[in-house]
Simulated assay, not measured.
Amino acid sequence: MTTKIILDTDPGIDDAMAILFAEASPEIELVGLTTVYGNADIDISTRNALYLKQRFGFKCDVAQGASKPLKRQPVGASIAVHGENGFGDVKIKAPTISADPRPAHQYIIETVKASPGEITLVAVGPLTNLALALEQAPEITKLVKEVVIMGGAFGTHEHTGNVTPFAEANVYDDPHAADTVFTADWPVTVIGLDVTHEAFFSTDYIDTLRDTCGDVGEFVWDISRFYLDFYKSRMGVNGCFVHDSSAIAYVIDPSLFEVRGGPIRVVCDGPAEGMTLQKHNDTKHKADEWADWPAQNVAVKVNDQALLDLYLDTITSYSS
């Protein structure tokens, strides 16, 4: 049985890898791509989503979303990581197709209401679109099947942040939206740096994608040149962590991950802005900002080799 998903995304090199993974998987029906600012500004994010749809023949909808955070000042596009055009400055043709006329949050609301209990929301960028959907239609918490988020960092395996010492980029871009999404009364699983930094696409692995996965593999290889240069210069590694594709892997096979439960809150200002904190025990406290919120899941372990095998096998089968 396939899982219907709306993938909320800011494409983005690793987003493109995840989008292609979702489209390629026989376990997933990619219903829609909703775009958000983050790795690139909103117009570039939407153009990139439309480009992928047209180039690879996706049937999904594309809806353009938020251009800025709910409250905080925008931090700007991640040009140093993804290039000026979001795809590592690889030249692409302008798509000739258009986005859905509805704003992303409205598209989410209407699609979820049309298929109650069937849609999983997968968010791999800032969570502004999901927060806007909750603000306008809080009843969707009872209609969504699940929410899977790539974001956050909870200190497992000493992974605490990638844009500040204690904040992950997607949450840091809009901490107020993230806190809204994490504390809503719907089932959330967070795939954060705790596990995405435990899985690694080596340069040899991406070379294998190029050599065995046709046009898809060649595209992933091309756009990843810029991304891998960033990782090499910043961290001295030959490859990149498996961020957004880990969220797709969870949807396909949750058994690849070990999760723990407990309410989650986000620090929304000050030097720890964007920090994610989970209360994962039942200890009672006089003051407790977690006690009255629903328990959500945080991934704390991953079978990294099985994840890598799943990605390669899925893209190989799709390309053939």
Rank of each mutant, 00 (worst) to 15 (best):
K4C: 02
K4V: 02
T9S: 15
D14H: 11
A22P: 03
P26I: 02
P26V: 05
P26F: 04
E27I: 00
E29I: 02
L33M: 10
T35W: 08
G38D: 10
G38T: 13
N39H: 13
N39I: 05
D41L: 00
I42C: 06
I44Y: 05
S45C: 14
L50D: 05
R55V: 12
F56H: 08
G57V: 07
F58K: 05
C60N: 13
K68D: 06
Q73N: 14
P74L: 00
V75H: 12
I79Q: 15
A80F: 10
A80C: 06
G86A: 07
G86S: 12
F87A: 03
K91H: 02
P95I: 03
T96E: 15
I109F: 11
K113D: 11
E118R: 13
I119N: 07
I119L: 09
T120W: 07
T120F: 10
A123F: 03
A123Q: 10
V124F: 01
V124N: 08
G125C: 14
N129Y: 06
A133S: 13
E135H: 07
A137T: 13
E139I: 05
I140D: 01
T141N: 11
E146G: 08
V147I: 13
V148L: 05
G152S: 09
G152M: 03
F154Y: 08
G155F: 08
H157A: 09
H159N: 11
T160K: 15
P165L: 11
F166T: 14
F166P: 02
E168S: 09
E168H: 12
V171N: 03
D173L: 11
A178L: 03
V181G: 10
W186P: 01
V190F: 01
I191R: 09
I191W: 07
G192N: 05
F200D: 01
F200N: 02
F201K: 02
Y205H: 03
I206D: 07
I206R: 14
I206Y: 10
D207T: 15
L209I: 04
T212Q: 15
C213W: 05
G214F: 02
F219G: 01
V220Q: 14
R225L: 09
L228M: 11
D229F: 01
F230H: 13
K232C: 00
M235C: 06
V237Q: 15
V237R: 09
D244L: 06
D244Y: 01
D244W: 04
S246A: 13
D253M: 02
L256R: 00
E258L: 00
E258V: 06
R260E: 14
G261I: 00
I264G: 08
I264H: 08
I264E: 11
V267M: 05
C268D: 00
D269E: 15
E273A: 14
E273P: 06
M275W: 04
Q278A: 04
Q278S: 04
Q278N: 08
T283L: 13
K286C: 11
K286L: 12
E289I: 03
W293T: 09
P294D: 10
A295T: 10
Q296D: 01
N303Q: 15
Q305L: 09
Q305W: 05
L307I: 11
L308V: 01
L310E: 04
T314M: 04
S319L: 10
